[in-house]
Design a protein around this nucleic acid. Structure first.
Lengths: 101, 101
DNA sequence: CCAGCTGTGAAAATCCTGTGAACGCAGGGA
DNA sequence: TCCCTGCGTTCACAGGATTTTCACAGCTGG
């Protein structure tokens, strides 16, 4: 379970995510979220699915944790890979990880 | 309930429609409409039928929602599949989804 | 005590939806 | 031919819904 997509590498067993070989400084939650997303490339994942994988259980109906962590993750990915948008929003549904454009 | 027609794939349970494996960015309504149409290929569906499936209930007599969303859907499908017309108009009746030409 | 992580609330930004109206097009009749 | 009519297509917009981002307080480990 190791993934390389372009300049990004995700290594769950090493608790690491690398860009051009350099580790991103992600928190545990951010890394779990990135791992979860990257394990299902091009697939639209609902908030419920993401929450279940990263936090466990079901989110409160008004829980915004997933959104907040997607935002934080985007900020760090965006800093390391300017001009790329790896995580796409699907309004009313959830998020999709797209390693290639 | 999964449908593949040529380069187009409709996956209701994943809230997704793919062209060549890439998700179209459709809104919920657009996707519901595409799902409904694609579940009845080659069949002419009236506005009333489409409205009932996508919006629920009956449309006002002068409601243009179906037409507007067919137009929006065509625009996005046309962008992903140039030169193809998947949704045909049947004047005075409704619309027909035709995956093959 | 300090530094960093976490989740929550709320404001700001963005997107979706339905509606009215304008536009285009084809057919019929004068 | 020209005008009118009916119908479908598309544009524009306002209101509402959803997402993004920020700030903050609690917590933890050093």
């Amino acid at each position: 379970m190791l993934a390389r997509m372009g300049r990004l590498e995700v290594k769950p067993e090493q608790h690491a995510a690398l860009v051009d070989g350099r580790p991103l400084s992600l928190t545990v939650r951010e890394l779990q979220l990135l791992i979860t997303l990257s394990e299902h490339p091009q697939r639209i994942m609902t908030r419920e699915e993401l929450f279940a994988e990263v936090w466990g259980g079901r989110p409160r109906s008004d829980d915004r944790s997933v959104d907040v962590y997607v935002s934080r993750l985007r900020a760090k990915l965006g800093a390391a890979l300017p001009g790329r948008r790896l995580i796409h929003t699907h309004n009313g549904i959830g998020y999709r990880f797209s390693p290639e454009g």
